[in-house]
Amino acid sequence: MERRTLLRGTVAGAVAVAGSLWSGVASAAPAQPGTSPYGPLGAADGNGILLPAGFTSRVVARSRQAVAGTGYGWHDAPDGGACFVAGTGWIYVSNSEISTTGGASAVRFDANGNIVSAYRILGNTNRNCAGGATPWGTWLSGEEVSRGYVYETYPEGGKAAVRRAALGRFTHEAAACDPVRKVIYLTEDETTGCFYRFRPTVWGDLSAGVLEVLVAGTATSGPVSWARVPDPDGSPTLTRNQVSGAKRFNGGEGCWYADGTCWFTTKGDNRVWAYDAVNQRIDLAYDDSLVSGTPPLTGVDNIVGTRGGDLYVAEDGGNMEINIITPAGVVAPFLRISGQSSSEICGPAFSPDGSRLYFSSQRGTSGSSSGGITYEVRGPFR
C-alpha cells in the first residue's frame, strides 16, 4: 500500500524527504481561509515583497540584464520553473513565454546559494509557459500554443534539447511525473481543455509511448478512467476533441505530483484539483466559489509542494500573491508582490534542501514582458 505522504520532487539525485499529505482527500472539504502557519504578512521589503516574519527576499535576475556575476542576459517573460541538484549546489530553470523566440534558461548556484553561472538550455520555441521536472533530471518545457510541443531539456547544459512529439501536440502547460505508475501527467490551457497522461514505452525514454485523456462525468468529484488519444498529433482533429466523454477543465495550469496524488490547477474557475492515482478519482482541494467570505486565492496558476505537506499556489493577477494550502485545509497568503498589478507570479520552486523558494514576476513593474524579475525567498520553511 502506497504511503499517502507528500514528497519533495526528486530530480537529478535529490533526496526525497517525506512529510504529511492530506489524508482522505476524497472525503475532505475544499480548503477554507484561515491563519497562515507563518503568521501575517509584514510591510513590503526593499524589493516590494510582503513576507512573514523571518523571511527575506533577493532579486536573482531581471529580463534583458546580465545575471549577477555572469555575462548572460536573462530572458523576457520568465514563466514556469523548477530546481535540480547539481553537484553540491543546484540549478533553477525558467521558461520564457515569448512567441517564436521563447525557450528556457538556467541559473546555477553553489552550495551557499551564490550564483555561479547562467545560460540558455532551449531557444527559438513558441510561448514556453510551464513544464515539469523528471526523475532523471531533465526539464520538460511546454509550448502554450495550439498543437504546441513539449521539449525535453538538460538543466546542466551541454546537450541539445529534444522535441518530444509523442507527448502530444496541444496547448501545453505543466507536466508532472509519477514514477510509481511510470506516467507523466499533462495540463492543457484551454477553456475546454483536458487532463492527460503519457505512458512511455520505456520509463525514462520519452521518444515513444501512449497518450491518454481523463474521462469522467460532469461532477467535480468521483471515479475517473483513462482513454487512449487516437492521434496525439492533433491534426486535423485536436486532441481534446478526439475522445467522447473526455472531462473538460477550464484553463489547465500548474501540475505537481507527490506520492499517489497529482495536484493540478484551473485558472478559469480558480480551482485546485487532486487526482488520486491510487484510487483513480478526482476531488477539489480548493474552489474560490466555495470558501467562506472573501477568497484569498484567485487567478490560480502554478503550483508546487513541499516536504512538510504544504502546497504553494501562485496567482496570475489576483493580489499578486503566492498562497499556502496546508494539509489541514487552510488557505492563506504566504507572500505578496506590491506595485506589479499588471504582472503574474510564475515558476515557484524550492531548492533541494527546501530552504529557498524561487519564482518570477513575469512582467515586473513595467507590465511588459521585457520587465520580468526572478526572485529568491529564504526563511524557516516548515
Rank of each mutant, 00 (worst) to 15 (best):
187 T>G: 01
329 G>D: 12
379 G>C: 14
370 S>D: 05
135 P>V: 11
151 Y>I: 14
273 W>I: 10
263 W>E: 05
378 R>E: 11
345 I>G: 04
245 G>S: 05
160 A>N: 07
350 F>Y: 08
215 V>L: 05
115 I>C: 04
169 R>Y: 00
191 T>Q: 09
251 G>Q: 07
116 V>I: 14
69 G>L: 11
342 S>H: 06
184 I>R: 03
204 G>A: 12
371 G>L: 03
340 Q>E: 10
345 I>F: 03
127 R>E: 06
231 D>R: 00
140 L>P: 04
197 R>L: 07
167 L>N: 07
183 V>K: 01
238 L>G: 02
377 V>M: 04
15 V>R: 08
68 A>P: 13
207 S>Y: 01
49 I>P: 13
253 E>R: 06
102 G>H: 05
303 I>Y: 09
330 V>H: 10
145 V>H: 01
230 P>E: 08
229 V>D: 00
373 I>K: 05
204 G>H: 09
195 F>T: 12
271 R>F: 02
89 G>C: 14
273 W>N: 09
6 L>C: 15
150 V>Y: 02
220 T>D: 09
104 A>L: 09
39 G>R: 09
349 A>P: 00
326 T>Y: 11
105 S>C: 14
327 P>T: 13
2 E>H: 05
261 T>M: 02
283 D>T: 15
9 G>S: 15
177 C>F: 14
268 G>S: 05
328 A>V: 04
225 S>H: 04
103 G>F: 03
142 G>K: 13
119 Y>N: 07
25 V>H: 14
212 E>Q: 15
266 T>C: 11
368 S>E: 05
217 G>W: 14
243 V>C: 06
202 V>M: 02
112 N>S: 15
303 I>H: 05
146 S>C: 03
108 R>S: 13
256 W>C: 13
304 V>G: 02
326 T>M: 04
173 E>T: 13
136 W>V: 08
157 G>Y: 09
359 F>D: 06
167 L>Y: 02
323 N>L: 12
165 A>F: 00
125 T>G: 02
192 T>V: 13
371 G>D: 04
351 S>M: 06
245 G>W: 08
5 T>Y: 11
65 Q>N: 08
297 L>D: 06
159 K>Y: 00
296 P>W: 06
212 E>P: 10
234 G>A: 03
119 Y>G: 10
294 T>D: 06
137 G>Q: 07
55 F>Y: 12
351 S>W: 02
136 W>E: 09
337 I>A: 01
299 G>P: 06
26 A>F: 03
99 S>A: 15
116 V>W: 00
306 T>H: 05
330 V>F: 07
293 G>I: 03
7 L>D: 15
359 F>C: 11
259 D>T: 04
166 A>C: 13
177 C>Q: 10
296 P>T: 07
171 T>F: 01
19 G>R: 08
293 G>T: 07
312 Y>D: 11
295 P>Y: 14
8 R>V: 12
342 S>M: 07
187 T>W: 02
264 F>H: 12
84 F>W: 00
382 R>T: 09
17 V>A: 11
235 S>A: 12
237 T>G: 01
138 T>Q: 14
52 P>M: 08
129 C>E: 15
102 G>M: 09
317 G>L: 10
75 H>Q: 03
90 W>Q: 08
